[in-house]
Simulated assay, not measured.
Amino acid sequence: MDRTYPPINNLLEQAAHIVRSQKKAARTLEPTESYKRGETEELIKFANANGLWISLSDLKVEFLSKGGENEVYTGDNDDIVVKLNNFEYAGDDLENFFIRIAAHNKFFSNVPYQMIGFAYNSQQEFCAVLIQPYILAEREATEDEIATHMQALGFEMDYYDEYHNSDYEVFDAVPNNVLYGIDGDLYFIDTQIRLRS
């Protein structure tokens, strides 16, 4: 597998398929809370079989910050950020993570995620390794700018940081997760997205 120039989301799609297959197999045998464990085991097998382990030292990145689910690093040329995502916000089912990333890339395609492999973070948690363009920002977006943008995408506001359309809920759309770029565009770099129940 050539990770130097992979097709966009190819690895993401393969990993999502593995998770969905594991979930279908486990659905009749196990309670929901054990989905994540089985899905993680299958992704580790997939990483081992395909040489998908990422070494941060090989990527030549420097630590930037840590949030609830991501350790964030910046690349050598400051043109990308690398995020080690520990699946914390996926809940008991990793499929939620893949739904969120695919929806993010659909709605916020000017700052897409690309999955390049797997790693263990500084806490030794199994993680997806994602890259995203590094955004040159003039400032954080305002709540009004975020609301206007989300409404233009067909979302209705529920609260100042939560929106929905017929299929998805977007939340944590707060100024520090949405940047106002030097080009005048908004960049939603770290919101949460889930399917509407």
Rank of each mutant, 00 (worst) to 15 (best):
M1Q: 01
R3G: 03
R3Q: 02
P6W: 00
P7S: 01
I8M: 02
Q14L: 06
A15E: 01
R20V: 07
K24P: 13
L29A: 13
S34P: 06
Y35C: 09
K36V: 07
R37W: 06
R37M: 07
R37C: 14
G38I: 11
T40F: 03
L43D: 00
N48V: 04
G51K: 00
W53V: 00
S55P: 02
L56W: 01
L56R: 01
S57W: 06
V61M: 12
V61I: 15
E62N: 09
E62W: 04
L64R: 12
L64C: 09
S65A: 15
K66R: 15
E69P: 14
E69M: 10
E69G: 10
Y73C: 07
T74P: 10
G75C: 15
D76K: 07
I80K: 10
I80V: 15
I80E: 08
V81F: 02
Y89R: 12
Y89Q: 13
G91M: 01
G91T: 00
D92S: 10
A102T: 15
H104S: 02
N105S: 01
N110F: 00
Y113C: 01
Y113V: 04
Q114E: 10
M115S: 01
I116H: 03
S122A: 09
S122G: 06
E125D: 08
F126W: 03
L130H: 08
Y134S: 13
A141V: 01
I146D: 15
I146N: 07
H149M: 10
M157I: 15
M157D: 11
D158K: 10
Y160Q: 13
D161N: 15
E162W: 05
A173Q: 14
V174A: 14
P175E: 12
P175V: 07
N176W: 15
N177G: 09
G181N: 10
D183M: 03
G184T: 03
G184W: 01
D185S: 07
L186E: 05
F188S: 03
I189R: 03
I189Q: 03
L195Q: 10
S197F: 03
